[in-house]
């Protein structure tokens, strides 16, 4: 593989709290190539959103503290860039959309005003020669709203957020994200707050935009179905670790890590009568004091003595398919 667009290497992040160090990310490695769609899945507290926010340096520090590792984007380490530099990347080269679109729109301005502001502020970061005036920025805003398939964009641009439905608001946020012509779109649960028929529309839209704008997407979701529909590769996280990373078809047909296997067995099926669903016994570990060795071993049905002593090394278990589990380690 050539140089990935985004390369998260051995990234370790802790939160300093009154109760001690919350070891949120325990040395994760994730790569996203140009134009690739990658999904990160996992349950509450696995660190998927923290990973996404770390890329854009959106976490307040303190309490967040980078312990080690780097996050390289187009070859530059985002973690060491000065704030002025990261502002030229944030929202421009890397854009992000979130779960609840209403929270990210200002209720007292029209979507047009907000979109124009974003366009103008992006320009302030770029070369001064090709700056647009407000009118030209508005035309660009209409074009952006059209590109996210908002009907009657020239009229809807003057709507206030409350006048739009949830699906339309998410489209507005996607339009905003596209305004800087990003090469990477980070989508943190973008359809979780939406109804299923609207979710289908938004997923289709993101898939179209990936083709149209040659976007790379890092999609965060707890819903394996959403990731299956949109992503070519899936990264499974558990308690601050990447436990498995494989092409989408591989994850669903040949899951290797016991956690991935159990997670897939826990999902009720739409098109089959299942007699028994097996949950995963126990609950996610407290990351103030995570279990030693493999963080999944207290809940793992296939745990061996070594699992409590040593953290498994992430390695290839099949071509292009990696997992972090002692079952596949040397001597197992």
């Amino acid at each position: 593989m050539t140089d990935p667009l985004l390369d998260i290497r051995d990234f370790r992040l802790h939160f300093d709290t009154f109760d001690g160090e919350h070891k949120a990310l325990d040395g994760i490695n994730i790569q996203v190539a140009r134009g690739e769609t990658v999904g990160i899945v996992g349950e509450t507290g696995c660190g998927k959103s923290i990973t996404a926010k770390s890329v854009l340096r959106l976490l307040p520090s303190p309490p967040a503290r980078v312990v080690s590792g780097e996050i390289r984007f187009q070859g530059r380490d985002l973690l060491t860039l000065p704030e002025a530099e990261i502002r030229r990347i944030r929202g421009i080269d890397i854009a992000m959309i979130f779960q609840d679109p209403m929270t990210y729109l200002n209720p007292v301005f029209t979507v047009g005003q907000q979109l124009v502001d974003v366009i103008l502020s992006h320009q302030a970061a770029g070369p001064s020669a090709d700056r647009l005036n407000r009118r030209a920025a508005r035309d660009k805003a209409v074009a952006l709203l059209e590109s996210v398939r908002i009907p009657h964009a020239d009229v809807q641009i003057d709507s206030y957020p409350h006048q739009l439905s949830g699906g339309m608001r998410q489209r507005v946020l996607i339009a905003m994200a596209l305004s800087g012509s990003p090469s990477l779109l980070i989508a943190d649960e973008p359809t979780t707050a939406l109804d299923v028929t609207i979710q289908a529309q938004i997923l289709q839209l993101i898939a179209d935009l990936v083709d149209e704008f040659h976007l790379a997407v890092l999609m965060i979701s707890h819903d394996l179905g959403v990731v299956a529909r949109l992503c070519r590769r899936v990264v499974v996280m558990y308690a601050g670790n990447v436990v498995e990373d494989a092409p989408t078809a591989e994850i669903f047909e040949h899951p290797k890590h016991p956690y991935t296997q159990r997670l897939l067995q826990a999902i009720p099926h739409l098109h089959a009568d299942v007699q028994h669903l097996s949950g995963i016994t126990g609950s996610i570990p407290n990351l103030l004091d995570p279990p030693p060795g493999c963080r999944f071993h207290p809940r793992c049905g296939q745990a061996m003595p070594v699992c409590a002593r040593m953290k498994p090394v992430f390695g290839d278990v099949a071509p292009g398919h990696g997992a972090a589990c002692h079952l596949y380690g040397e001597g197992a």
Binding site: A200, D223, L224, F252
Partner: peptide, 9 residues
């Protein structure tokens, strides 16, 4: 509309 958690879409 329901996205299915499986390889084949």
């Amino acid at each position: 509309s329901v996205p299915l958690p499986q390889a084949e879409q």
